[in-house]
Design a protein around this nucleic acid. Structure first.
Length: 491
RNA sequence: GUCCCCAUCGUCUAGCCAGGUCCAGGACACCGGCCUUUCACGCCGGCGACACGAGUUCGAAUCUCGUUGGGGACGCCA
């Protein structure tokens, strides 16, 4: 049994987007499951559009997601010599020929065909040039591309796709495609195959947008005398209107980087993306890395495309609700110690990190995370909604202020009294604070919720949050007393 | 225009290959209730789909054909 080898071959013409990431994830899962190798190959043959920034972004994105590879990154341009050699070999062996038609002629023909709703296909003008004719045109300095000579055979080329089943196409439907530009640079179809042969790729998992390329590439494998790998064409991810998602038309929201910037846990994104077009066949939706590798199979990849459920300008969901839900799930379920690492980054970035959170205040810090994460959805929430836990300069939520403080004018006088009661408590803990608050409410003929919710507003700046009695103890006597006394500033 | 692929709740999907156990199951979202100092979590309940039409069959979400719809490709991009 030959080695299981897969590759992720992004073209570095933009950031890593979620569609590309999903392709990488599927390849990675298959490689890991079968003890195979994952090769990262940067397909930078389009020099015009390839950028170093894009290469860096793709690598950073993969690393952030936790998708590791075993070989590479290789750069396609480094193997240009092999690509040219392969093309020459194909010409020598009669599998390819030089074509002297100009780009302008061909573009015009194609557009005319499209406009007239005719079949769009290369007409084979140079397919049967005699050696003399070729020599003559070359002598005249006419530039030429190299075209693959599609076998003049009856019947169909085909392959057994692991996702779609048998895919076939008549030879007559495939026109002689270009494999080398007139400037001598080989094209994707050829480079890709030559590289896959050299890298001994056994399984190709890619998007269905490559489906029609596959038959042409199979012809190339045959002509080059190489074994044909296993193909699996995964469904595409569409936007809410059913159009293919792309960097160009959707911008940041489809960039992996966006999720990093907006408080996603990398594994939560992986978990969400893998479910877009694949399922384990049972009701599980949350997977550890090990569980996912174990559960993943090519056979359970769906045939039909899925929709990335993002509504522009949705006030409640900044991205697909299910993605947010999965992220929130991990936020709540992961070990606090692991979460702490992520939250630290957020607090450092917000300028409210205290090194004591890793030392003498570590227990306190973990307790805050434990309580607050219950209602947070992203890592950003710790530094925004949860800012009051870590800093005095937190914003006061308008609704909290109006509804829980200003609506009850008597609180202006009463809260400072409650503050004094709290100040006198010894010890000051959850039980004593709760008792004091309840007694105070009763004495003043208030429902306990009134002073408690007002306290939440003044102490956390929020209209919602964890149990206030737990928070009194957690925030500490000093902070509680001083923030309660601030009440007068708001009237 | 030609070729290829796809089609179950708003979204992600199970079921389809091996037709009956499916008046179609789960998750997210949404709505209601419980819990409660708030919100959330949690729990309980609700809303909600087999694109359409023929055929095969005792029986079709499942098989066949057609229609419609959607997508992909047809490049000296990858």
């Amino acid at each position: 049994m030959s080695e299981v080898r897969l590759r992720f071959p992004p073209s570095p013409t933009g950031y890593l987007h979620i569609g590309g990431a999903r392709t990488a994830i599927y390849n990675w899962l298959y490689a890991r499951k079968h003890g195979g190798k994952l090769i990262l190959r940067i397909e930078d043959t389009d020099v015009e559009r390839s950028t170093q920034g894009s290469i860096d972004g793709i690598i950073e994105g993969l690393e952030w997601l936790g998708i590791d590879w075993d070989e590479g990154p290789y750069f396609q341009t480094e193997f240009a010599g092999e690509h040219v050699a392969a093309a020459n070999r194909l010409i020598a062996e009669g599998h390819a020929y030089k074509c002297f038609c100009t780009k302008e002629e061909l573009d015009a023909k194609r557009e005319a065909a499209l406009a007239a709703k005719q079949e769009v296909k290369y007409d084979g003008a140079c397919r049967n040039l005699t050696p003399e004719q070729v020599a003559e045109k070359e002598a005249a300095g006419i530039p030429a591309v190299v075209r693959f000579k599609v076998p003049d055979r009856q019947g169909k080329v085909g392959y057994n796709d692991k996702v779609l089943g048998r895919i076939e196409q008549a030879y007559s439907e495939i026109s002689d495609f270009v494999i080398v530009r007139s400037n001598g640079k080989p094209l994707y179809l050829l480079c890709n195959v030559v590289d896959d042969i050299r890298d001994r790729i056994s399984h190709i998992i890619r998007g269905q947008d490559h489906k029609d390329n596959t038959n042409r590439q199979i012809l190339l494998y045959e002509a080059l005398g190489a074994p044909i790998p296993v193909f699996a064409h995964m469904p595409l991810t569409m936007d809410i209107k059913g159009a293919k998602i792309s960097k160009r038309s959707h911008g940041e929201i489809v960039a992996v980087q966006f999720y990093k910037k907006n408080g996603f846990l990398p594994w939560a994104l992986v978990n969400f993306l893998v479910l877009l077009g694949w399922n384990p066949g049972d009701d599980r939706e949350i997977f550890s890395k090990e569980e996912l590798i174990e559960a993943f199979t090519l056979e359970r990849i769906n045939k039909s495309s899925s929709i990335f459920n993002h509504k522009k300008d949705d006030p409640k969901f900044f991205t697909d609700p299910k993605a947010i839900n999965i992220n929130a799930h991990y936020l709540r379920a992961m070990p606090v110690a692991e979460l702490a690492v992520f939250v630290k980054k957020e607090l450092v970035e917000a300028g409210i990190w205290d090194d004591a959170y890793e030392h003498e205040k570590k227990e306190w810090f973990c307790k805050v995370l434990e309580l607050s994460r219950e209602r947070f959805h992203t890592l950003k929430d710790f530094a925004t909604l949860g800012r009051a836990y870590f800093a005095d300069d937190f914003a006061m939520d308008e609704q909290a202020l109006n509804k829980n403080v200003l609506k009850h004018p008597e609180l202006k006088e009463l809260l400072p009294i409650l503050a004094d009661r709290f100040a006198a408590l010894d010890p000051f803990d959850q039980q004593s604070a709760e008792q004091a608050a309840r007694d105070f409410a009763e004495e003043n003929g208030l429902k306990v919720g009134i002073p408690v919710n007002a306290s939440r507003a003044l102490i956390t700046g929020q209209v919602k949050g964890p149990s206030m009695f737990e928070l009194f103890e957690l925030m500490g006597q000093e902070v509680v007393v001083s923030r309660l006394k601030n009440v007068t500033k708001y009237f």
